[in-house]
Structures are given as C-alpha cells and as structure tokens.
Design a protein around this nucleic acid. Structure first.
Lengths: 195, 195
DNA sequence: GTTAGCATGTAAGGAGTTACATGATTTT
DNA sequence: AAAATCATGTAACTCCTTACATGCTAAC
C-alpha cells in the first residue's frame, strides 16, 4: 500500500545511502553525477520516494547531535536502517530483466561493488544477450526490407547498430575480466585449478 | 481536448504514413525497426494514438476498393490527410528541445529527409550542445568529488563519457556534411563565395 | 486441428516530469 | 539588499506499459 515500486530510484537511493548518510538535495546531485550520462531524477520523484522509504522503515532521519535543527525546517539527513540494508541486498541479488534493461542497468552496475560476483556475471550476460537480441531483430528486419532507405535513415541505423555493438564489446571485456577475477580470486571454491 | 500530446509518437506515425499508408500492426513493426536501437512502442500506445489522430482529422481510413473488408473487422489502413501533412511539416519545422532531447532526437532525425536544411542544422547543433552541457556538468561534478570512486563506478563513468563523446563526434561530422552540402547545394542564396 | 502469428483494441496503473509554493542561507 | 543557490515538498499531468479481451488466418 505505502508507496509504489519505483524500483530503479529506490535502488539508487538505498545504494547511495549505504555509502554515507545524505539529505535529499545532495542525494539528487550525487545521483545525477553518478548516472548523469544515463538518466536524471527530479525532486518531484526523489522526495516522494524518500517519504515512501521512510514509511517502509528502510531509511531513517539522522539526528547528529542537536546542532542542525535551528529554524523550523533544516536539512533532513537520511541514513539506511537495518531493514534498508536487507532490502538493498535483496535488490542487488536480483539478476533479471529488471537489472539489465536500459533504464535500470546503469544503476545496478553503479553498485556492483556491493553485488556478488555470480550475480554481476549474470547481469552482464543478461544485458549482453538483451542487446544481441535487439541487434538480431533489427538486422533481420532490415534484411527483409525491400525498399531502399534514404541516407538519413540509413545513417541513423548505422549509428544505432554501431553504438549497440560497441556496448556489446564493452560487456565482453567486462565479462572476461570478471571471469578471470573469479578464477584466481575469492570465488566459491570452484575446485581451484593449479596455479 | 481530443487526445493528449504524445508528440514523439505522433511525429513517428505521421512521418511513417507520409511515406506510405499502413495499418496499425505493420506501422508498429516499421517503427520498431526504424527506431529499434533507440526506443520501442507498444500497441497500448499506438492504437490510442491512431484514434486520436483520426479524431483530429490528421489521418483517415483508406478504402482500397472493397476487397479488404471481408469479415466484421479487417485491416484498417490509414493514410495522411492534407491537415496531417500540414501538421507533420509543423512538427518537422520545430527546432527546439523537443527535437533534440534523448527521447525525440532519433525520431526527428529519422525524418530529416522531409526537414529543411536550416532546421536540420539547428537540431544537430542543439543536440550537440545539449550533450556538451551534460559532459561539462558531469566532468566538473567529478572534479569536485573528493572521495575516490570504486572501480565499477569509474568504469561506468568512463564508458558513459566515451559514449557521449562519440555521439558528439558523430554530430560534428554530420554538421560538417550539412554545411558542405548547403554551400554548393540549393542553399538560401548565401552570397556564394568563390569556388 | 492446433499452434503461431496477424490484427485491433481497452482499462488500469507505473514511473516519472513540470510547475508551483515556500523559505533559509550564502554570495556578490 | 539583491541574486543565486540551497533545501523541501505537493498536485496535476504525461507518456507509456502490462495485461487483458477478442477473433481471424496461415502453417504444420
């Protein structure tokens, strides 16, 4: 009942507050720096989200001493509660479309530091196959197209394909790095090969 | 009153129907091929949009002969009306944020063939400065950041910056090409320099 | 003869923005 | 003392998705 889903923003807020307590205004700046190239949030979505998280008991107001409260309304610094940390872990463990779609992938990636190696890998692979699906469907649709396209449409297609292909290559490198790291690193006892 | 704005979808539909009459189902496939790398529309938004455009008199049902209508409901092929063509021209002439923001730039670009050279140039430049703004604000925000970021956050930033920088370079090339074309091509009498 | 794809549509709702409203604090 | 920016919040609205409902037609 209390508060909608807002999955992406919720994760972004909980993840940021896990690093350090913050008040709304600064939180927004952080998020828009962190995700600036991918998306931006406005106060109109952030403050309602904070209220909802507060009602759910996932975050709490922090009273530093009693210094900050001077006038009627001062900064409201939020920190993560124990339930909030649990919820964050839960969100970070989900390796599904909600983690690798366009709107959410960046946010999930930004908090990979707190994500298990296995989950990281599944998210990276999920995103990669999502993009490859997209490449396939557009490429076959283009192949079926009888009429030749004008130069602007072609240029748009070319640029779009190239961008997605680039992201796939980037993901390939990340996946390879993850695999290499989990081979020698603190993996889940994968019958460590000699080395 | 009748029908909301849906600017992007409206333009996409009018633009597509300008090339050739189509029915809803095929229209959606076309759009999702044309814009596949950037965005996708569902029937839940397309059909209401078609109804709204019909009510506004911007599109009309086409009766080919009387072949197609067999059962109660068959394909409904829509074509652009005269008012629709006017509206399309109006939309294609607008060189403002509504043309160069993320959600809309692709659609506007896709129909550049029907857009005046001057407007094309202003949209390309508008998009470029929009992206440069974003680069600046993220870069200066990063420079101000005291704490060093973890490797995933850094990698995300790096990739984001690189992608946007690539798009800026792409736009630079397009702008240069447009300028070259308008110098010798059918430009607006810009006191043609020797050459 | 049944699955897959073609074809059209609606109702409910999710996720966010814009514009507004308000006031404190810092800078110029 | 004016302007900018910090800071919090709400109401209305936009745009789109999901899930559902319906039926036809082609392929296997």
């Amino acid at each position: 009942m209390a508060g909608g889903q807002r999955r992406v923003l919720e994760l972004a807020v909980l993840g940021s507050l896990h690093e350090t307590p913050l008040h709304g205004y600064e939180l927004r700046k952080r998020l828009n720096t962190l995700l600036g190239m991918f998306r931006a949030f406005s106060y109109g979505s952030l403050y309602p989200c904070l209220r909802s998280l507060l009602e759910q008991g996932l975050i709490a107001e922090e009273q530093p001493a009693q210094a900050t409260i001077v006038g009627g309304r001062s900064k409201i610094v939020y920190k993560l509660t124990a339930e909030g940390k649990e919820r964050l872990q839960e969100l970070l463990t989900q390796a599904g479309p909600s983690a690798w779609e366009d709107e959410s992938f960046g946010v999930h990636f930004a908090f990979f530091r707190h994500t298990e190696a296995e989950v990281r890998l599944r998210i990276l692979e999920g995103r990669r196959s999502r993009l490859e699906e997209r490449l396939d469907s557009v490429r076959t649709a283009l192949a079926r197209t009888r009429e030749r396209l004008d130069s602007y449409t072609l240029e748009l297609q070319r640029h779009g394909l190239e961008s997605v292909e680039r992201e796939v290559r980037w993901l390939n490198e990340l996946i390879a790095t993850e695999r290499r790291a989990s081979e020698r690193g603190p993996a889940t006892d994968t019958t460590s090969s000699d080395e």
